[in-house]
Design a protein around this nucleic acid. Sequence first.
DNA 1: GCATTTTATCACCGATTTTTGAACACGCAA
DNA 2: TTGCGTGTTCAAAAATCGGTGATAAAATGC
Lengths: 242, 242
Amino acid sequence: MGDKKQVLVVDDDQAIRELLAEYLAKNNYQVSTAEDGVEMDKKLLENRPDLIILDIMLPGDDGFTLCQRIRQDSNVPIIMLTANSDETDRVLGLEIGADDYIAKPFSPRELLARIKALLRRAHFVNDSSKSAAKPRYLCFANWKLDTQQHNLVNENNQRVPLTGADFQLLSLFLANPNTAISRDQISQALHGRPAFANERSIDVHLSRLRQCLGDDAKAPKIIKTVRGAGYLFIANVRATEQ
Amino acid sequence: MGDKKQVLVVDDDQAIRELLAEYLAKNNYQVSTAEDGVEMDKKLLENRPDLIILDIMLPGDDGFTLCQRIRQDSNVPIIMLTANSDETDRVLGLEIGADDYIAKPFSPRELLARIKALLRRAHFVNDSSKSAAKPRYLCFANWKLDTQQHNLVNENNQRVPLTGADFQLLSLFLANPNTAISRDQISQALHGRPAFANERSIDVHLSRLRQCLGDDAKAPKIIKTVRGAGYLFIANVRATEQ
DNA sequence: GCATTTTATCACCGATTTTTGAACACGCAA
DNA sequence: TTGCGTGTTCAAAAATCGGTGATAAAATGC
């Protein structure tokens, strides 16, 4: 529960997606984005967000339709977003199953406050139905990641601490094993923005993480480099509670 | 659940109280009203409302103060109401523990929609007491916490008194061992509101608690700092009656 | 083989976060 | 009023993180 909350931002305006991603990342949320319903569905499957920010005006299915669709099989908190401050829209959104509603242009601070308030409220719910319960440990190679204590446990039950970024990075890999992850994706997960050209910081993180894990870039057993495409987690992953 | 929901309206303007009472009654809610904090407290005792609509400008204690007070011992949904549409107010209200916020003059339809949305969200909460009998003592490291006398007992049966906040804080940790607890969660437990940005008071409490326990932040045996995520109780906990 | 691009790793440094003592603020009782 | 218990804010110091640039190493293309 000390974990970062996942927020999914659905908006067709790239500027807003980026603004929000960065702002929320800075405030300790893990952000993913989608620009339309199709992409949203994909993201919903990939990682189960704790909250969705949903624009109304979208290409393809509009926000109302998507909201309804989400509600068919999930109670995830939804905040609607719209350029149009028409009351009818607002009421419609709320009646359709959204939890809150903010008009553009919005103040990021207020949005953040509303996100917090809603997560606080929704938190109690998930408590009873441990549907989205995240496993305590994730095993791979001869390591165990303690997702609560944010550290690694080796074969001899010794603990190795992880820094925030290392933990996030490893979590990202464990959530997507056997999938090439690009630098952009990593940067997106870590900072909520794409990687800059010539940026070395991600390599350095990888290097540090490999060092923690005792993995060798030349003969990798855990994380393999895919030249030109990013990195690949090649060890098997298994969830346990002890 | 087939019952009508109880809504408590707190506002000093009689016209608004009556308007809301009538409108909500028409829409199948059971309404009670209060014109200030004193009356509110009375009504809270009389009948336990399912939702509170709380004006900010009130004679005596203002809405913020009342909201905080309510949150000390209840999670009842709260919608704040105000003539002033200042963003700072809005954010403050939400941070203090309110769930939603509407500016006057408001549309009754929208208010109703927000009430519905909030009740829908809050409905899952069965906060009917987690009344598991509490053990008299909780042992950890070389300490014993006396949950009745609110003090600590060391190996030599000497007692160390704890201040109110320290006791609450330690209890929180003992109830969630091996789990990273964020500053927000701590503040929530201590004051019923999330931590403000740059607030250092929780750190200071932690520092004092560690001092009481003889724990060292640099080489912790009891409470570990998880940078960016909060604090973590790492000692084993065991309940006894003596 | 050689040039070019991409990746690995090191050491350094600035920025951020945490710790902690001390001063301050508040309510309460004598 | 004064003193006391409690909790918060301030500020300086310490610890830690994570990014940058340099340089080496590896991979790729010619």
